[in-house]
C-alpha cells in the first residue's frame, strides 16, 4: 500500500538559501511521523509546503497515490490536510462549538427564509466529535478563554477531525504546556492514530517523539539525513543525526 501523503524530491529556495533540499517523505494512514531537526533545519518550510503556505520550487506532493496540486492553504484543506499551528487559531471570545464550526457555521431557517445560527446542531455535533476522540471538556458553551492549554489544543484538533482531516500536521503541540497537559495531548495523538489519521509531528521534545512516533525523520540544513523506525533506533542516534554525527564522534 502506498503512502497517504507523500512528498517526492521537493525543494524550496528563498533567494540564495536552499531551505528544503530534495526531500522525500511519506506517511501512512494511522501512522505518526515525527520530523526533528535543529532551528533552521527546514522543518517548518517542509510542512508549510505540504499545508500550502509555500508553493514548492521543485518536486511533487502526492495524496493517496495521486499528484496533488497544492498552491494555497485552501487547496490543502480541501483534500483533507489540516495544520495545527502553535497559536491554534482559536477565537478565545467564542465558545467551544463555535470554534469548531468557525467559518463553516451551520444555519437553519428562521421564519422560513432568514438563515440563523443553529446552536443546538453545532453543540450536538461538537460533543460527538469530542466524545469520539475521548476529549473531556466540561461545557461546550464555555468560551475558549476559560480552557487550559491542553484543552485548547484538543479543541483545535477536534475541529480538524470534524472537518474530515486525513492528514494532521502538528507544529510543536506540547511546547507551551505543563506536564499533565502534555500527556493529554500525546494521548490524543494516539487516539488519532487509532482513527486512521496520518500525523506529522514537528517537535523539539525528544521524549514526546519517542512516546508517540512510529517513525522519526531527521532534517539538517534543509536535507533529510535520517528516516528511522522508532523501534530500531535510540535517542543517541537521533541526537547525533540532528547535530551532525561527525561533531559527536
Amino acid at each position: 500500500m502506498g503512502y497517504l501523503i507523500e512528498t517526492r524530491n521537493i525543494t524550496k529556495r528563498f533567494g540564495g538559501l536552499v531551505a528544503v533540499d530534495n526531500v522525500s517523505l511519506g506517511v501512512n494512514a494511522g501512522e505518526v511521523v515525527a520530523v526533528l531537526g535543529d532551528n533552521g533545519a527546514g522543518k517548518s518550510t517542509l510542512i508549510k509546503m505540504i499545508s500550502g503556505v509555500y508553493p514548492s520550487d521543485e518536486g511533487k506532493i502526492f495524496f493517496n497515490g495521486q499528484e496533488a496540486d497544492i498552491n494555497s492553504p485552501m487547496d490543502a484543506l480541501a483534500i483533507g490536510i489540516e495544520t495545527i499551528y502553535q497559536d491554534l487559531a482559536l477565537a478565545e471570545n467564542l465558545n467551544v462549538y463555535s470554534n469548531i464550526f468557525l467559518g463553516r457555521e451551520k444555519t437553519k431557517k428562521f421564519m422560513g427564509f432568514v438563515p440563523v445560527l443553529d446552536h443546538d446542531y453545532m453543540h450536538e455535533e461538537a460533543s460527538k466529535v469530542l466524545k469520539k476522540l475521548d476529549i473531556n471538556i466540561p461545557s461546550l458553551r464555555n468560551n475558549v478563554r476559560t480552557l487550559s492549554g491542553g484543552q485548547r489544543q484538543a479543541v483545535a484538533i477536534s475541529r480538524s477531525i470534524y472537518w474530515n482531516a486525513k492528514v494532521l500536521i502538528m507544529d510543536e503541540p506540547t511546547a507551551a504546556l505543563g506536564v499533565a497537559q502534555q500527556k493529554q495531548v500525546l494521548d490524543l495523538v494516539n487516539t488519532l492514530k487509532d482513527h486512521g489519521i496520518a500525523v506529522i509531528l514537528i517537535s523539539h521534545q525528544m521524549h514526546d517523539v519517542f512516546e508517540v512516533a512510529d517513525r522519526i525523520v531527521v532534517m539538517r540544513r534543509g536535507e533529510k539525513v535520517g528516516d528511522l523506525v522508532k523501534a530500531e533506533t535510540s535517542t543517541e542516534e537521533v541526537v547525533n543525526l540532528i547535530v551532525g554525527s561527525e561533531m559527536v564522534k
Binding site: P73, M74, L77, D87, L88, A89, L90, A91, E92, N93, L94, L102, G103, R104
Partner: peptide, 11 residues
C-alpha cells in the same frame, strides 16, 4: 477575537 484565526478558517 482573533483575526488570524478568522482568516485561516476561511472567513
Amino acid at each position: 477575537g482573533n483575526e488570524d484565526a478568522a482568516i485561516r478558517s476561511g472567513i
